[in-house]
Design a protein around this nucleic acid. Sequence first.
DNA 1: TATGAATGAGTGTTCATTCAT
DNA 2: TATGAATGAACACTCATTCAT
Lengths: 194, 194, 194, 194
Amino acid sequence: MPKVGMKPVRKQQLIDATLESIGEFGLQNTTIVTISRIAGLSSGIISHYFGGKQGLIEATIIHLLEQLRLALLSRISVENLTATERLKIIIEANFTSFQRSTPAIKIWLSFWAESMHEPKLSRLQNINSKRLYSNLLFSFRQLLTENAAKTAAKQTAAMIDGFWLRCALSNKPEAEFKQAEQLCKSFIDEKLSH
Amino acid sequence: MPKVGMKPVRKQQLIDATLESIGEFGLQNTTIVTISRIAGLSSGIISHYFGGKQGLIEATIIHLLEQLRLALLSRISVENLTATERLKIIIEANFTSFQRSTPAIKIWLSFWAESMHEPKLSRLQNINSKRLYSNLLFSFRQLLTENAAKTAAKQTAAMIDGFWLRCALSNKPEAEFKQAEQLCKSFIDEKLSH
Amino acid sequence: MPKVGMKPVRKQQLIDATLESIGEFGLQNTTIVTISRIAGLSSGIISHYFGGKQGLIEATIIHLLEQLRLALLSRISVENLTATERLKIIIEANFTSFQRSTPAIKIWLSFWAESMHEPKLSRLQNINSKRLYSNLLFSFRQLLTENAAKTAAKQTAAMIDGFWLRCALSNKPEAEFKQAEQLCKSFIDEKLSH
Amino acid sequence: MPKVGMKPVRKQQLIDATLESIGEFGLQNTTIVTISRIAGLSSGIISHYFGGKQGLIEATIIHLLEQLRLALLSRISVENLTATERLKIIIEANFTSFQRSTPAIKIWLSFWAESMHEPKLSRLQNINSKRLYSNLLFSFRQLLTENAAKTAAKQTAAMIDGFWLRCALSNKPEAEFKQAEQLCKSFIDEKLSH
DNA sequence: TATGAATGAGTGTTCATTCAT
DNA sequence: TATGAATGAACACTCATTCAT
């Protein structure tokens, strides 16, 4: 019994199922069948709503990027934050439990690998990468000279991504992630204490 | 052409072809046919020498890791290096032109993604990750207190990996890599100037 | 052509095609392609319905065994048969035109060869072998002492299988099969006339 | 160091290795590599001496048939045997420990399956089949009328082959083979006691 | 709107054969 | 005489896509 206005519901349903499938089987072993089975829908529906598997994967990555963007937005929209507080919040937004979850880790790593060959994904990746830098730079500028701010922003961005990567690939991610967040914050403190 | 002692020659030939194929098509689109065509050999030879495609991929990754290890080893075996010089050299070894090459980038990214599902690759990844940390820690210990050394080593490792990642994924990797190396070294100077 | 409820239709279609292919090319030279071409379907459908080639072969063997079982069942369900009549009918069921057909012969011979390495097939073979013995024993018991019945049942089972085998492998199977059936029946008459 | 006159030695070596490989892996999983490894020789030697794998398989089958022929010949060449004794000896020759061995069983079953498609093997099979019948007929003729002898020979041949087959495929071949031999002999006694 | 039966190109793997040494 | 490196056709299998319903 076809219902109208199912589009957004179905799309989200399929994106969630994709994340779940990737979390369980990895992107490599995620097929249209594993996704549609998890979603409790037929395999044909994926082509119907996303034009194909690739479309769904891209939508899932966009969802992931969006989550990251919103995580920061919701935290930063609080009023009267000092620049230092903002910097700490940016770090926290990159280490939320969602970003540390197995599906997110697997899809991030696959996303990077894929983005080398998919211009569309590469563009998304670049936007995301620059956003982190811009956000950091915005706050550092209020605390340091222009050149020092740029350097600090680049180093902090690298340290955040680097820690995320090293923790994601480590044996005991949870403990490592926790410490990583602290070490990133310490780095900022050091930078500013000069 | 049945000559004896071809084993190491053919193996290296195939590993080189694998790197080339991954550089051109990506790991996802690298098949036994693309590799064997680049190597100028038949497809059957891969199973003959590596037991299958997966075996060749793993051998290629091990080759990559070994290159990284040797890059450091050859630089560090110079006598009479100060601890600070050693730290700088560790950074340089992670940004050699080989590690910055497109094939290396593509295989590193794919390697990380795959290591989430292949215990064998995961183990290799862990060894590699810890080696960087250990090397950094060894030198920092000669310059800082134990706790400060640990913190510095962890931050530096993250910054190296993070910069490598951000540069690898950027639009203009070459310029970025160059600057990244400098920023890593600056970070060490700052750390030690405290 | 996506109709619902095609499963049993397609499965039978593929089993029939398998028998035809084995009849023409032999099990050894029967591939997924020869089967699917005969069935007028794609090769992928085999994995879809039977999980793979082996699954289809097994299903075909089960079909063969089932045919044998049904051939006896349909003949024996007639009322008021004497024990002697039942014995003759058991023989006839083992020499039906289906069991004497080239595809059936080829698959039986291959089945035996395969059952040495496939536990699943071995089990089926054993069940089938014992069924013939049990059926014979049941009727012989009504005519002979326990020990004599057991001996007769074993000898008759061996003679049936042996004649079937010798006829199947002979130059002119049809004539031989016909005579074989008679000789089996004569054997029973002799046994009972003692 | 090539030696001259190695031909017969190598050929027998390879036939023995083939039997061993089939005994362990089955004909289906017996490759040129498994055979040559067991023989301790290179794979190329097979083509050299037998023209290819098929040639070696055929030679192995001929060896098997020859063993059967010789088993009978050596037993029957004793002087002053009665016709009845000869019949019993024919039975025994078909149930020697060699014929009951796993490699022999596997290769016999495979031989039958293959002979449906290889005219050469089919011819060998026919010769072998007729030899058993002729041998039995020769002795029965001395004890029964022509027609009765023919019937008895055919039935006995079928029973021997049938018992061999049923025993070969059974769960506990050894015990079954032993009883089978007895039941074949009993059959002859019954035949002659009429 | 939603299904899932059916397709078939593409993949990794196996293995008998070849042949320079 | 004997090797074993190398080949490449043949194979079973996977899976994104299509489309009649």
